[in-house]
Nucleic acid binder design. Structure first.
Length: 430
DNA sequence: CATGTAATAT
DNA sequence: AATATTACAT
């Protein structure tokens, strides 16, 4: 299923204790569909979800068992209460952090909610990345209150530290404790749902690595440095020096890469048979190949295939390139790779995102938004150098997607992901 | 063990 | 389609 794409929570050996399981979140939302979707999203991530469609219901729940709610996610435009009134009243009843989610992106509204005590303001539509780490708010406020003296805000079921056992693989049954909540969805065939939950929770760990052009370039660089003889997964991994990258990743990629090389080679031997080559992703230009006499492939600017590039004979020394990884945005899980070349080559710094990072795991696998095309390297004796930015022959280039800037691309990605998520929800639930 | 390869799964 | 995973041979 697409669980892997949807599910990704920061869970590692080190911080496995910090996990939403055991965090009870109250979702207040008047629109039933929205309520269900958000609730499902939260549940999938391991939250225990309680719901209310009216402000009075929410207040009632809080009055009844206030100490069991660790987090409150609420819409402000509720039919039976004023916009900020809900915040005030909830704030009186509960010390748990309040997160507002609303379609209203008016600045004054946002500031108003924050001023009225909201910890966080999310603009609808809410996506998985918005909700998956909300539990951290509870942790933060818990620390806050602990420091300030009163440790009243204790988690039910010990989610902060002890619950790691429930996550340790192989013991999914212990996580079932959370499904006994208010048999809301009890009516449905529970086996399916439960299995789904188990699968979901156990699948939380893995997110797929995406070989961006940048990552692939590092890969190629390692190959060149190591030479054909030493190009084994372990060494490659070392030389790539990308945090979180595992040998299996390299192995898999290497395998496919070699496969590609072989195919490429075979294709070459059939010198210029017209349509012998299908317009695969490796040869996105389609028809006649755009290979110059030197075997230097001029890459189109929009290729997302990873197995491009050709291994250069090992005598080719490549400069001493230094790789450097640095976090792009503080709250972003993505990593920006900056590779610099010295001297003779124009130093290029490509921004790219890849989802390696098993440590600070994240799930969003943004496709490449590289500005440069993939770097094809010559396979002839002559070495062709890395970045080949030549935008000149682009008058008739179609592909409107290139025109979009990165921000827009990312936005579209997120929207697409959300759409996909909602689709899955529909398929699974209805 | 680590690796290469094919087949298969997600 | 791109990666991951597995099985098996080396």
């Amino acid at each position: 299923m697409t669980c892997e794409q949807v599910l990704s929570v920061e869970v590692t050996e080190n911080n496995a204790g910090s996990f939403p399981i055991g965090v009870r979140i109250l979702v207040v939302e008047s629109d039933p569909t929205c309520l269900r979707i958000v609730s499902k999203m939260l549940q999938v991530f391991g939250y225990e979800v309680k719901t209310a469609t009216r402000a009075t219901d929410a207040l009632h729940i809080l009055r009844e068992k206030e100490d069991e709610i660790n987090l409150i996610l609420t819409e402000t435009h509720l039919p039976d209460m004023d916009q900020y009134e809900i915040l005030e009243m909830v704030g009186e009843l509960s010390s748990s952090p309040i997160v507002v989610f609303s379609a209203d992106n008016n600045e004054s509204t946002i500031l108003g909610c924050l001023f009225k005590g909201a910890e966080l303001y999310l603009v609808k539509p809410v996506i998985k990345n918005d909700v998956k780490n909300l539990w951290q708010l509870t942790y933060r406020t818990k620390l806050k209150t602990a420091v300030s003296g009163e440790g009243s805000n204790t988690f039910h079921g010990g989610s902060a530290e002890q619950n790691t056992s429930s996550l340790t693989v192989g013991n999914p049954s212990s996580t079932m404790g959370m499904t006994d909540q208010k048999g809301k969805r009890k009516e449905l065939e529970e086996t399916d749902n439960d299995h789904e939950y188990i699968d979901n929770l156990t699948a939380l760990k893995k997110s797929k690595l995406v070989w961006t052009n940048e990552l692939h370039n590092i890969f190629l660089q390692a190959l060149r440095i190591l030479g054909v003889d030493g190009a084994h997964p372990k060494k490659i991994l070392q030389h790539m020096n990308v945090p979180g990258l595992k040998k299996e990743n390299v192995s898999s990629h290497l395998q496919k890469y070699r496969l590609y090389l072989k195919r490429e080679q075979d294709g070459m031997q059939k010198t210029m048979v017209r349509d012998c080559r299908p317009s695969s992703t490796f040869n996105p230009q389609g028809g006649p190949m755009s290979v110059h006499s030197l075997g230097f492939v001029h890459s189109p600017t929009h290729v997302n295939s990873n197995y491009n590039g050709i291994l250069i004979p090992n005598y080719v020394q490549v400069d001493s390139q230094s790789k450097q990884l640095c976090p792009s945005y503080p709250n972003s899980n993505h990593t920006e790779i900056i590779t610099t070349t010295d001297g003779s080559f124009s130093s290029f710094d490509q921004k790219g995102k890849y989802s390696v990072d098993e440590h600070l795991n994240q799930g969003t696998t943004l496709s490449n938004t590289g500005t440069h095309g993939p770097t094809f390297l010559g396979n002839s004796q002559q070495q062709v150098q890395f970045p080949l930015p030549q935008p000149q022959p682009l008058p008739e280039k179609e592909d409107e997607s290139e025109i979009l800037d990165i921000a827009t691309m990312e936005e579209l990605e997120l929207l697409a992901m959300e759409k996909e998520f909602l689709e899955d929800l529909k398929n699974d639930l209805w």
